[in-house]
Structures are given as structure tokens and as C-alpha cells.
Design a protein around this nucleic acid. Structure first.
Lengths: 248, 248
DNA sequence: GTTCGCGCTTGATCTAAGTCAAAGATATGA
DNA sequence: TCATATCTTTGACTTAGATCAAGCGCGAAC
């Protein structure tokens, strides 16, 4: 049913975020040379599983293009998405062999991977890599904690508004903003995936999106293309304080 | 209403977890010497706030004894606990000035603190510190993600069972286990704090604890002293798979 | 000892979100 | 073109947990 991932060519990773953002922001050229020997690229189609929870994981890597999700599943099938990986986000944990979560390609996906052992070795010898990784991990921890507030205390409507504003904030196309506060983007998630992220059912997601549309908070073109006429209004609906959830 | 924290004496931190666990597991003696110059100790009473979200935070540190909680609060007062800090857990973020969450002493608390600037400087020059901090942060991230499943998908009863098994697992007194699987510990949280951690109301927490008692999953002596006759049964009630939520 | 206060329990009722069910959009492929 | 499948919407009904409202138990202060 699912195809094997294909190996992508290095050219597809000209702007590899690991190289330029995660690891090597302050690296010396000779370190980049080392990097080239241990990195490779993988492509996945929407819906493919990158790795199953519990599987042995002999690489670490980061998202180049597309979106991946981390999900946890209980024996009875209840599932909770615990992370949304956008381009430049890091996957995998140096020092651990097994994957802790299912990683699934939510859209078509290109990842930039490093064989784990050499990566760990490189980390030992390159302090900046560990520092950069610490910084990224702390950002992820903050995101996870922000999400705990969403899951634990927000209403269904606030949850939807929170998700929309997070996607909008991280989506590059938000540069269509302009002075008006208007903002346009495409939802990269099905209603079911949104439900899994928000701890809701897909029916409730659908109803709340309809309600936000009815109330003029968002406009929809098709199922996925969203226009937010007033981002401040959306953030109010999300129950965030006026700074929009940006951390100091 | 709240007292100022008092400075504790170094003697109270003979087994300082930062020194022995977080930072200096592999440090050289001269590095320990440097450490001594920038670290100090603070004591708080149960209920005192260590730091408010948004405040300037000029230290990092870790819990020596007692329990602290990280909480987020919305304007209308809804609050969600996003982390429980037990002895040896680290607080604060190198590279950021403001606190992201309220930190509150849940029980009487002793913390071991480091002035931030010198700590950051030391981190630059001591790779093991960054590595150890990365490891700890990844552990916290895993804990946060495990908690997202609890908040998003578990029933009230499963939430209570999950919290009890987490506290039991981390509580030192669980060494009273023995071969029987019986396990005894004290709850370090009020019903309200449990509710804030679990995304429930305190009434629901109370009802579910009563129900678990009625069903023989736990026994209570007073409000806080808990006996778990069969830890496997508790984990089943938590909806965890048989490995008890331990990561590979 | 009595009274206060706080943390906790329990009951009655309400409601937001879940469940079950049907049907409307799009897209894919024969 | 029509059949099939997936994703989505909407409606009717149910329910887990919230809300509102008494009280209980127990230590601290008088």
C-alpha cells in the first residue's frame, strides 16, 4: 500500500536547513566537508510513514520541504499528534536508538538525513552543533508547553483558532499580509489530522471551522485555502494575549 | 502575604544535582572551582512564587529538594501546569532573558542557582555542560509530549491514574516496592494542583480519586498518603501499554 | 474547648463535545 | 461519462465532565 521512500538528489537540498540553520550556522568550511560525507536525502509522499514508534532509528535529520507529524497512538486506536515538523525542524535524538513516536509525512516531504553514529561523533567535536541543537530543542519544548495549554484548557473554538494562527504564523506565504492584517494560507492538514493535533473529533473540527466562517473570522475557498481578514481578531478567538503568543 | 525567599547555606546542597548530575558529571576539579564562585542557594516555602512569567530572569538553576511547578495562565484565569520540577530538574533557559512561565514552589523548596551570564560563559568553554543540558532538555521534551497524549486523549480516570503512576515512578520512596508490586508514596500536590496539571476541575479529580479507591486500585490514608497494591493494575487504568510508558 | 479557614468530598444539574448516521463535494480511474 | 473513494459537512441524540452548591474533617489560633 505504501511506497518505499525514494532517495532524493543533493540538488533538491541546495538550501538544506541542517547545513545552514541547525548545525552549521557558525561552522568552518572544513566541517562542512565532513558533513557532506554522512548526509543523504529522502523523499516521501503524503501519507507515507517515515518511521514507526519503537523502530530502530539509525539516522537523525531535518525537514527540507513539506510537513511531517509526530504522533502517539494508544492500543485502542486513540491518537494524539505531539508535534508538527515544518521545514528546518529536527527529527531524532542523539543518544537514543529507538524512535519514540510515529513520524508520518503529512504532505509530500523531503528530509535531509545524517547517519547517526558519525553525526554523534561530529557533535562531540563541534561545540556549536550541540549549542544549536540545544537551542532548537528548547524552542520545541516551549512549543510543546504552549500546546499543553491548548489541549488542557481551551474550548474547541479556541483550539481551532490557535491552530490556524500557529500555521499562519509559521507559513511563509503569510508575507502576503500587507498593512491590513489580512493573511492568506493553505491548510496543510486534513480535518482528521487537525482533530488529532487538537484532541478533538473531526466532526467538531468541521463544525467549529464552519462557525468561524459564519462569524467572519475566516474565509474559505475550497476546503483548504484560508483567508484571515483580521489576524488580531483570530488571536482573540484563540484566547491568546495580545502579544500573539510570541515569547519574549 | 508571601515571604521573600531566604538564601540557603551551601551545606544544604551537599549533593547539589547541578554539580553532580546536570553539569559536572564529567567535569575536571578546576571547573568545579569556577562553579563555586557563581552559584548560590535559595529556599522557598510551599506556595511561594519563584518567578513570574515575563519577569527578567538572571539565573538558571535546578531543584535540590522539594517540588516546583511551571504554570501558564490565561487572562480569564484558566491555568495549565506545563511541567513538574522534581529534584535535579533544571529551570531556566540559557540565552533568554524573560521567564516564559510562572514557577511556583509546590512544596517547601531548595534551589541551586547560577548567575546566568557566568553560567553561559562557562557553557561556551565546557562542552560537556551543553551536552548534558541537551540530554536533559530532550528528556523534558519527551515528558511534555507524553503529557500531550494525556491531556488530549485520556479520560478523567485515565488522567488521574497517569499522574499517580508518574509520581510513583519518580518518587524515591517507591523503593518500598518489594516483590509484590505494592507501592507507597505521598502526593505532593493538592487536588487543585492535580486538576491544573490534568486539565480537569478539582471536583472531577476528587470524584475520580474516590472512584479509584472504591474500585481498589489505590488505598488512601488521609488525603495524601497513597498505597498502590498493584502497580500493573494502575498502569492499565492509565491506558499505558505494558512497558509503563518507559521509553526505549 | 471553640471557632475559623482551608482543602476536600459529594450531590444535583447543565452543557460542550462526542457519537452515530446520512448525505454533499471533489477527485481518480475505468 | 459514470463509478468509486476520500474528505467533509450537517443533523439528532448521548454523555463525560463542568458548574453550582452544600457540607465534612482537621489543624491552627484564640
Amino acid at each position: 500500500m505504501l511506497k518505499e521512500p525514494t532517495i532524493a538528489t543533493p540538488q533538491e537540498c541546495a538550501d538544506c536547513p541542517i547545513r545552514h540553520r541547525a548545525v552549521c550556522a557558525r561552522c568552518e568550511p572544513q566541517e562542512l566537508g565532513l558533513l557532506e560525507e554522512i548526509k543523504y536525502y529522502r523523499k516521501f509522499e503524503a501519507g507515507q510513514t517515515v518511521i514507526w514508534a519503537g523502530d530502530r532509528m539509525d539516522f537523525v535529520g531535518s525537514v527540507v520541504t513539506g510537513i511531517a507529524s509526530l504522533t502517539q497512538t494508544m492500543e485502542d486506536g486513540r491518537t494524539q499528534m505531539v508535534g508538527l515538523l515544518l521545514p528546518s525542524d529536527f527529527v531524532g535524538r542523539p543518544g537514543r536508538d529507538g524512535a519514540a513516536y510515529d513520524v508520518v509525512a503529512t504532505t509530500d516531504l523531503v528530509m535531509c538525513c545524517f547517519r547517526k553514529k558519525p553525526f554523534e561523533h561530529m557533535m562531540e567535536n563541534t561545540p556549536h552543533i550541540a549549542h544549536r541543537l540545544l537551542e532548537m530543542t528548547l524552542d520545541e519544548l516551549d512549543a510543546a508547553r504552549e500546546w499543553m495549554l491548548v489541549l488542557g484548557r481551551k474550548t474547541a473554538r479556541e483550539k481551532i483558532a490557535s491552530l490556524l494562527s500557529i500555521i499562519a504564523r509559521r507559513d511563509a506565504t503569510l508575507r502576503q499580509v500587507g498593512m491590513t492584517g489580512t493573511l492568506v494560507f493553505d491548510l496543510p492538514l486534513t480535518r482528521e489530522a487537525m482533530a488529532d493535533y487538537l484532541g478533538l473529533t473531526l466532526e467538531t473540527v468541521s463544525r467549529q471551522i464552519s462557525a468561524l466562517k459564519r462569524d467572519g473570522v475566516i474565509e474559505l475557498e475550497g476546503k483548504r485555502h484560508v483567508t484571515v481578514p483580521d489576524f488580531v481578531r483570530l488571536m482573540e478567538e484563540a484566547g491568546d494575549d495580545s502579544d500573539g503568543g510570541m515569547l519574549a
